[in-house]
Structures are given as structure tokens and as C-alpha cells.
Write a protein that binds this DNA or RNA. Structure first.
Length: 275
DNA sequence: CGGACAACCTGGCGGC
DNA sequence: TGCCGCCAGGTTGTCC
């Protein structure tokens, strides 16, 4: 569930407490299995004494620029990052996977109930990151650039929006939101869009992500901000529905339909988003 | 390129 | 109340 707005919210919250802090070591309370890209001991030895110079986001990855390496973390569905005094416990510690003691007595912790998250250490991020499309909220992502990327694509819109190599950072929630804003059916094929529809989709993707960001992310399921607070975006969603949420379309009042597209739960308004 | 599907995981929920 | 089974989700990898 952490998608671009949720990861960006986390990045912004983590910047102040981590600025120019030095990581002393890395501890893995439980066997890390596939979570890290090195052996646990090698990982800890390599990250020790590296200073965090910046915290940034690319797609749904958090990027920590260290003295010599990049620390790259993907939260997947249930990952959570938080900074606390080393002695202070937190409910999220129940699923604690990594603790990074810092040089001022605080600790960066990574908790992840479902163990899908990834914690990678690499000198060159490109060595471990998959191909990623443009950042949809950056100025360089223009309507013309979007139309150019659409050329030659024929798949259904929902799957295309979820393709991180096509556009970076959109996940299941904001894909459904963007399609509702654009009044486009999730099964519409990319090569069937008129110029006007392309333009609606372009603006809708950015609007959906900006709305999520403005509300500090959507706390559906597990997502929390680093300070433990819930985001507010889930209260403003137009089409995406979590379990037990039967709110109708906010535009026309029609019940929201749920189908599966590319193995993903997909929510849309059958009145506003015609095939 | 695209679509289908399995795998990875495990808490939480619906159903009984 | 308790147990079972399935669902959720992002990404990777395989196959056609």
C-alpha cells in the first residue's frame, strides 16, 4: 500500500531526525532471509560508520545516500520506518526486522509484518534497482512526455498504470483513483484513447498522487507515518475501497464495482467510467 | 509487448 | 468462542 504519496510522506518525516547522522551498525532481530542483498554480517560491517547525507525517494523506494553506499528500502505492503531513542519501545517492534543505532542515541528501525520489504546496500543504486519510468510529479513529466510513452502501448489502463517501468510510484489505490478522476474504465486499452482522454489521464494521475500527498498518505491496512499517525487520504478516496467500505461513487452515487484486473482488486464507478 | 500465473508472507477477517 | 481458509498487496520470474 505504500505508494508514491505514502513513501514521500515517510521520506519527509525521516529527513530531520536522520540528517547527517552516522549509522553505528545494523542488527537483525530475526533471520533476514531474502530481505537484504548481502549476508547479515557483511551488511552490518559495511554500513557501520557511514553517515546519512540525504534521504530521497525514487518510485516507491526510499534512498538514503550514505558516505560510500546507497541504502535502499522498499516498504512493500507492511514495511514501516521510524526513529526513536534506542531504549524506547514501540508497538511496531513486534515485527522488527532491522535496527540501525545512530550516533546520537537514537535508532532507525524497520518493521515489516509480512516480510516482503527489501533493505539493500549498494554503491550504485542502478545495480539493484529495476527499470523505473519517470516520476509523475516532476516538472520534466509533461503531457507531451506522457503521450510519447503511451505510443506503442496496447494493454489495459489499470495494468499500465501499475507498471513501474511505465510510470514510477503508482500502486493499486492511486491507479483506481486516477482512472476515476479521468472517467476512464480500468479495462480501456491504452491505444484506444483519444487525445482528450490522454490529457485527462495525465492530469488525473498527477491529481490523484498530489491529493494523496496532501493528506499524508492513505492508511488502509498497515500504513502509518513514521510517528505512528495515520494518514488521512483514505477518507478522501473516490473509487478505491478497502474491505467493508461500501461508500458509493462520490460523483453520482452509483455503488462502486469491484473486478479483478491483472490479479489486482480494481474499483470503479460503472456510471462515470464507461467501457 | 502483454497477459496469465505462481511465488514470496502472514495478519486479519469472514464464514462456519 | 474457536478454527479454517482465504484475501491483501508490490514485485519478480516464468511461460506462452
Amino acid at each position: 500500500m505504500p505508494e508514491l504519496p505514502e513513501v514521500e510522506t515517510a521520506v519527509r518525516a525521516l529527513r530531520p531526525p536522520l540528517a547527517e547522522r552516522t549509522i553505528l551498525s545494523a542488527h537483525f532481530p530475526k533471520p533476514p532471509r531474502r530481505m537484504i542483498n548481502l549476508e547479515a554480517e557483511a551488511f552490518a560491517a559495511r554500513i557501520a560508520n557511514q553517515t546519512i547525507h540525504s534521504v530521497a525517494r525514487r518510485a516507491k523506494y526510499l534512498l538514503f545516500q550514505l558516505s560510500a553506499d546507497m541504502l535502499i528500502i522498499h516498504l512493500k505492503m507492511t514495511g514501516h520506518l521510524y526513529v526513536l531513542p534506542a531504549a524506547q519501545e514501540n508497538p511496531m517492534d513486534r515485527w522488527l526486522r532491522v535496527r540501525f543505532p545512530l550516533d546520537n542515541g537514537t535508532e532507525l528501525r524497520f518493521s515489516d509484518a509480512r516480510r516482503f520489504g527489501r533493505v539493500l546496500l549498494a554503491a550504485q543504486p542502478a545495480d539493484v534497482l529495476p527499470p523505473l519510468g519517470p516520476e509523475p510529479l516532476e516538472e520534466s513529466f509533461t503531457l507531451a512526455a506522457f503521450k510519447e510513452r503511451l505510443k506503442g502501448r496496447s494493454g489495459v489502463l489499470k495494468s499500465l498504470l501499475l507498471d513501474q517501468a511505465f510510470i514510477a510510484g503508482v500502486g493499486n489505490i492511486y491507479a483506481d483513483e486516477a482512472l476515476h478522476i479521468a472517467r476512464l474504465h480500468p479495462l480501456r486499452r491504452a491505444d484506444s484513447l483519444s487525445a482528450a482522454e490522454c490529457e485527462r489521464l495525465y492530469h488525473a494521475v498527477r491529481q490523484a498522487l498530489n491529493d494523496g500527498l496532501a493528506h499524508m498518505g492513505a492508511s488502509i491496512g498497515w500504513y502509518r507515518q513514521p510517528d505512528g499517525k495515520r494518514g488521512e487520504a483514505q477518507n478522501h478516496l473516490r473509487a478505491y475501497r478497502g474491505r467493508g467500505d461500501a461508500r458509493p461513487c462520490p460523483v453520482c452515487g452509483t455503488p462502486i464495482s469491484t473486478i479483478r484486473v491483472g490479479q489486482r482488486g480494481t474499483h470503479f464507478c460503472p456510471t462515470c467510467q464507461t467501457p
